[in-house]
């Protein structure tokens, strides 16, 4: 896992909104869609968190400080920050899904008075897989935000926290379901369960927002790869209101 900070030297790109992504190029290797994981209030410092899983992400992770890379963006529709104002906010993240939610968390904490209760519920595979651990710990020291972390499995000797899937944290969280906006990002199966659990807790489908992942080559709706039924994830998303995609999510391999 690598976090890459980029200082733009070309024409300044538009300030990114929380939840948007960039297309990053490792020259001679290829391009990949990477979500922005930094604070949108610092547009001169573009932060991306990358898991080195393919040739492009691997090459990006190996760049030395000062090296050049290609950047297009920002692309896509982000988290509904304006809609969240004045309401409780429940953030549910799974694994690397915390990265595209981090810009939203920065804004929530920076403008804390604009929002009601703020809950961050995070699930990781194991204690070693917890992303931004020190930051989570520092947020947890604040009195105006609830941060809960759970892991799928851990040895008793190195974990004293919650064990179980992230939805188990929902029952402990204090929020008013009728006046809540939920932001969810993680593996698709995890998001489906989160949306169902939020629905059971009384949060309306149109107040639940998911960030979808698909293969992307162009980010501008021309290459066809990221189609999800009628929508292009790159152009119409990646963040969708749950009621707009719930019908599509019911179908496997769509």
């Amino acid at each position: 896992m690598w976090t890459l900070e980029i200082e733009p030297d070309g024409p300044a790109s538009a300030a990114a909104a929380p939840g948007q992504f960039n297309m990053l190029t490792a020259f001679g290797v290829g391009e990949a869609a990477i979500s922005l994981s930094g604070d949108p209030a610092e547009p001169g410092r573009l932060v991306h968190t990358i898991r080195a899983v393919g040739p492009v992400s691997h090459a990006l992770a190996q760049l030395r400080p000062g090296a050049a890379l290609g950047l297009r963006g920002p692309f896509g529709a982000g988290w509904p920050m304006a809609e969240a104002a004045g309401r409780d906010v429940v953030i549910m993240a799974g694994g690397l899904g915390l990265a595209p939610l981090r810009p939203a968390i920065y804004r929530l904490l920076a403008e804390r008075a604009r929002y009601g209760q703020v809950q961050v519920l995070y699930g990781a595979r194991s204690p070693a897989d917890i992303l931004f651990r020190r930051e989570l710990e520092s947020w947890r020291r604040r009195l105006d935000v609830e941060i809960e972390v759970t892991v799928d499995h851990a040895a008793v000797s190195d974990w004293r926290g919650h064990v179980g899937v992230v939805t188990t944290l929902l029952g402990r969280a204090a929020f008013d379901p009728a006046n809540t906006v939920a932001l969810v990002c993680g593996p698709e199966i995890m998001m489906r369960f989160c949306a169902a659990a939020l629905g059971d807790a009384g949060v309306k489908a149109e107040a639940i927002h998911l960030s979808m992942e698909r293969n992307m080559k162009c980010a501008i709706g021309l290459c066809g790869h990221c189609q999800f039924g009628p929508v292009f994830i790159c152009r119409d998303g990646p963040v969708f209101r749950y009621d707009q995609v719930a019908g599509l999510l019911r179908h496997k391999e769509l």
């Binding site: 020259f27 001679g28 391009e31 021309l222 290459c223 066809g224 790869h225």
Partner: peptide, 16 residues
């Protein structure tokens, strides 16, 4: 109309 992209480079990596 769907397309993919591929990057290539010369042996030195100077041209791609």
């Amino acid at each position: 109309f769907c397309t993919s992209v591929e990057d290539s480079s010369d042996l030195t990596g100077a041209e791609s």
